[in-house]
Simulated scan of single mutants.
Amino acid sequence: MKKSKNFFPGNLKFLRERRSLTQQGLAEALGLSRSKVNALESGQTKAPSPEDFLGVSGFFGISIDSLIRVDLSKLGELKLRDLEAGNDVYIRGGNLRVLAISVDKGNNENVEYVPIKAKAGYMSGYNDPEFIASLPKFSLPNLPKQGTYRIFPTVGDSMLPIPDGSDIVTQYVEDWTSLKPNTPCIVILSGQQDFVFKLVTVQAEGQVLLRSLNPVFEPYRIAAGDVLEIWKFQAYTSKEIPEPETDLQQLVRAVREMQQEIKGRKV
């Protein structure tokens, strides 16, 4: 596998000079020593601490993902200002997140279940190891060995024929750009007390399109910055047998598809 280049050292120097700061000035702003800043810029610190990444990201207003993956010196001033405004055009999961997980006695990752009563708490505790450790844990067969998995309950009929109250087994998506259009996913949104189960399409200009399987529900777009996590559908369990689409649902779906085709021709 080809190793990705780490642009962090060069980006740190570039951003510092862009603001006309000396190493000493940046060190004082970040609460570091000048020698530490010099080591970070020269790449002598091979594994900067999470606190170093967070400090630099917060000070310059650039996501950690972009600090590491993107050569910022190659971007124009307009794109740099766009990044600083939080509109990360290089959508790979927004800001680099430290995913909280729990493991069993054999150091194998658990499959945590987020019950309905814990939904609201998940929005604030999704990256809290103690909260994640408090969730019910399961070991499920037939899941790929690689990946992190979690189970989320669904409420409502927006994803019919998957019934209301189903438990959705999901895999954590680290790089959102890897998702194929209309991939069924659980999406964790900031500022909300619930998560949504939708067909996800990551679009350009920092937008994510969310669409329901049930044609009665209109698709809508959200800003990538409002997304905390995305978990890709793997399987579901339910006490109900899925019902076939009604004639009305089939008609609505056909009309929607025609509308989308007409819009596509106008573009």
Results as ranks from 00 to 15, higher is better:
Asp88Glu: 15
Gly125His: 07
Ala47Trp: 04
Thr154Ala: 06
Pro136Val: 05
Phe14Ile: 10
Leu78Cys: 00
Leu72Lys: 00
Ala223Cys: 01
Thr177Cys: 04
Pro215Glu: 03
Ile262Cys: 04
Arg81Ser: 13
Asp52Cys: 11
Arg16His: 01
Leu80Ile: 15
Glu109Asp: 10
Leu248Cys: 02
Leu12Ala: 12
Leu135Ala: 11
Gln23His: 06
Phe14Cys: 04
Gly264Tyr: 10
Ile230Trp: 04
Val169Thr: 14
Lys13Arg: 11
Ile68Pro: 01
Asn11Pro: 14
Glu205Met: 08
Lys3Gln: 12
Ile64Gln: 13
Glu243Ser: 15
Glu261His: 06
Val111Ala: 05
Phe59Gly: 02
Phe233Gly: 05
Asp65Ser: 12
Gly147Asn: 15
Ala133Asp: 15
Asn214Glu: 03
Leu78Thr: 09
Leu72Ile: 01
Phe60Gly: 11
Ala254His: 11
Trp176Pro: 13
Ser158Gly: 03
Phe14Gln: 13
Val98Lys: 09
Ser139Met: 01
Asn107Met: 14
Gln250Ile: 11
Phe233Met: 01
Arg92Gly: 06
Gly156Glu: 04
Asp104Asn: 15
Val56Lys: 11
Met258Ser: 11
Ala47Arg: 14
Arg69His: 11
Leu78Glu: 10
Asn38Gly: 15
Asn142Ile: 06
Lys117Asn: 05
Ser35His: 02
Leu21Val: 01
Ser33Pro: 00
Gly58Val: 00
Pro184Leu: 07
Pro244Arg: 13
Leu83Glu: 05
Ala47Pro: 00
Gly94Leu: 14
Asp167Trp: 10
Cys185Thr: 12
Gln146Ile: 12
Gly264Trp: 01
Gly225Lys: 13
Lys3Val: 14
Leu96Ile: 05
Leu199Ser: 07
Glu205Tyr: 09
Asp167Val: 02
Pro48Cys: 11
Val200Gln: 08
Trp231Ile: 06
Lys180Thr: 08
Val196Asp: 02
Met159Ala: 12
Ile262Phe: 13
Asn6Trp: 00
Phe131Pro: 03
Arg92Leu: 11
Pro141Trp: 03
Pro153Cys: 15
